[in-house]
Amino acid sequence: MKKNIPLAVILVIMLMTFHISYSQTKKTEITLTKLWETDTILKTAEAVRYHPGKDIIYVSNIGGLPPNKKDGDGYISLLSKNGKIVKHDWVTGIHAPKGLNFFNGKLFVGDIDTVVEIDVETGKIENKHPITNAVFINDLDIDTNGDIYVTDSQDEKIFKLVNDESSLWLDLKGFYPNGILVEDNRILILSSSKGELITIDKITKEKTVLASGVRGGDGIVPINEGYILSAFQGEIYFADKNMLNTPAIKLLDTRANKLNAADMSFIPKENILLVPTFYGNTVVAYKLDYK
């Protein structure tokens, strides 16, 4: 038996369908407003990481150039959340520290061909983990079980460090991997040459392009809506997590001010993006807002 559907019900269904369609297609609009910038006493600031438990920002300083020289003049600095230098030379004697992250009370730092392990409480270097066949470790991230993944930008590979044993995880010839972000089932890699942000399945190692157009790609920061990406020459982009193989949206361009944008970090509760400026020898904080 055929039933007639009331006009009011049809209108409600149409409005719900429109709302769902609009929500799926509406683009996230993000703005960045500068909050503070440190004094220029940092030396080739390459990466930052915010530690929520200590409310402190950790900065890796390469020191003198080139960034692959084993000269022992690299160091780690500590900053407060308002950009004040808490300890300029908290850890010294590292060659050219770059990517860094925390796990179980330790700070792990990529240093050319080694991952340096530092006790967060004492600032003491407790171990140095050589990465076999690594040439230029750039960034690193750590899985929830403590496995460490590092990008080798020069030799175009990803290595994995487990229980002090390193191994080749994936060869990425032609991609020049730089930024890395480890998620539950996949790993995100940002290319410094192709301008692509790709996802790699941890099991199958199948690759998917998430975003493009970030030439000189450097750092990856996850936010609720997707990812903030930095381009070394001084640009910052947004990639929507619900979009595949689409151009990233430029949020900021500091090239005219000769400020680079290297390996960033984020303070989630306050929506603050932290950007090391490399040759600018500073860290800059931006407030992330939505239109």
Rank of each mutant, 00 (worst) to 15 (best):
V162R: 14
T92K: 15
E183V: 10
R255Q: 12
T92D: 09
E121A: 09
A285Q: 15
V284M: 13
F18L: 15
I5A: 06
D147N: 12
S193C: 09
G63L: 14
T25D: 00
P52K: 14
L181T: 01
I131C: 07
T282E: 07
V12K: 10
L35V: 00
S191G: 03
D141N: 13
G146R: 03
K27V: 02
N101G: 04
Q154I: 05
L197C: 00
L140C: 11
G195S: 06
V116E: 15
Y50H: 06
N178I: 00
V48G: 04
T31Y: 10
L259T: 03
G93W: 06
D253P: 05
V162M: 07
T17K: 03
V12R: 08
G146L: 08
I203Q: 12
I200T: 10
F136Y: 14
K207N: 01
E206F: 02
H88P: 04
W90L: 01
P177D: 09
T31G: 13
P268D: 03
T44I: 10
E117I: 03
L251E: 08
Y75T: 14
F238L: 03
F102G: 15
G105I: 05
D263G: 01
E183L: 10
A231N: 03
I30T: 11
N281R: 13
N4D: 14
F136A: 11
S80N: 10
G72R: 10
K98T: 02
W90F: 08
D141H: 12
L274N: 07
I203C: 06
A8G: 10
K250I: 00
N257I: 12
P247W: 00
H95R: 07
E121C: 05
L78I: 15
N163P: 02
P67E: 14
K27D: 00
G83I: 09
A134V: 08
Y22G: 00
V59E: 13
S192A: 13
I5T: 14
I85L: 07
I228M: 02
K287F: 10
K106S: 11
I62H: 05
F108T: 08
N104K: 15
M243T: 02
R215T: 10
K26Y: 01
L273W: 06
D141T: 10
P130A: 04
H129Q: 11
G219M: 02
I200Y: 06
K207S: 02
G64M: 12
V283L: 07
D113N: 14
P222F: 01
I142L: 01
E183F: 08
K69M: 14
D155E: 15
D113I: 15
K287V: 04
I180L: 06
K258A: 04
N242M: 06
L15V: 15
A262Y: 05
G72E: 06
L210Y: 01
G123C: 05
L35P: 01
G217A: 05
A47F: 09
T40N: 11
N133W: 03
L65Q: 04
V214N: 03
